[in-house]
Design a protein around this nucleic acid. Structure first.
Lengths: 190, 190
DNA sequence: GTCTATACAAGGATAGAC
DNA sequence: GTCTATCCTTGTATAGAC
């Protein structure tokens, strides 16, 4: 019948989400009020409530791309046959996400508010259990476990470190991947 | 003249600080209200204001041990003669601090509120510049810079990872030190 | 769909009694 | 030195006009 109209039905919503993520990254979720988001996005505070019922809904929608992307990485990795290939796929995927500012990976790992918000749904924890098992392989040693913890916790910070600024995207990826490979190597002696 | 009286003049204050740190670590600084601290420490909200004028003063006093300990590590390291010894001293010192829950290292690295609070005083940034220079040595390559960023950002999280729970303190230290050594090794090929 | 106005709760901070 | 009571500001959320 009719063609798809070119008007962007959700333009305001997208502006809103972009502004919110920027503020969440800079100031943290708690410190970002709805007033702040409203000011930064050009919508009024009450206007936010047309799109969302609560602040939590905004937070979850801001991080939706991230929450979808993480399981996708793991699913892709599971298709590989060798353990080494699986590890590289997961590391590469996580690095890709961490380097993408829009994903908000830094918010996810750091923010206590979000940790509590997500802990209510067990899907996130389930994802991490699966992914850690994939990365560590069967019967991992302590050194590897701790190396993984350092990688996942350090990745967001390292991705946003000043040392990254002068590098091109390919170098960033390869350096971060090298960090992951070093940390996940099983202990040799000791 | 008179002996030091055994009464603890600052017992209330210490309870207060311990409770505050516990809450800061669990919920973040922003999410911890003075009411929360009061409830957890047995003091009333107004009672806090006898000891401190503002919430920021409480935050800074909670982290005072940490803010003192970090420069001390660097000073100790500077006394060593070889670069390798300096690196091990700094890594060991940082790990020691990160493993000590009371130090609140996790709060320092993660919390945006604190980042902003500390950025007002340049001493912290100066300390990190000096310490990074010490760890990286002259003319560091990009891989080493990024490895350092991952170590310092990942250290608090790795220190509190579930994989740490079953280990004794000596094992924890040595595993974290191994992570640091791996990350700070200069790139070989590429 | 977006704004104005406002209700309601919570947080930081102060005054003053004890 | 610690508590009670209170003020002011900010934050989330809602009602209703346009």
């Amino acid at each position: 019948m009719d063609t798809v109209p070119p008007r962007r039905r959700r333009a305001g919503r997208e502006q809103l989400l972009a502004a919110a993520l920027r503020l969440f990254l800079r100031d943290g979720i708690q410190a970002t009020s709805l007033q702040d988001i409203a000011n930064a996005s050009g919508v009024t505070k009450a206007g936010l409530y047309y799109h969302y019922k609560t602040k939590d809904e905004i937070v979850l929608d801001v991080l939706k791309p991230l929450l979808d992307a993480l399981p996708a990485v793991t699913r892709r990795a599971e298709a590989h046959r060798t353990h080494a290939a699986q590890v590289d796929e997961v590391l590469g995927g996580l690095i890709e996400i961490a380097l993408d500012e829009r994903a908000g990976f830094a918010v996810l790992v750091n923010d206590p508010y979000l940790t509590q918000l997500l802990s209510q749904q067990p899907s996130m924890r389930q994802w991490w259990d699966d992914t850690a098992a994939l990365l560590l392989g069967p019967d991992p040693d302590d050194q590897t476990r701790i190396g993984l913890a350092m990688f996942i916790n350090g990745l967001p910070g390292a991705s946003r470190d000043p040392a990254m600024a002068p590098l091109d995207d390919r170098s960033r990826r390869s350096h971060l991947l090298e960090c992951g490979r070093r940390l996940l190597r099983p202990a040799t002696g000791t």
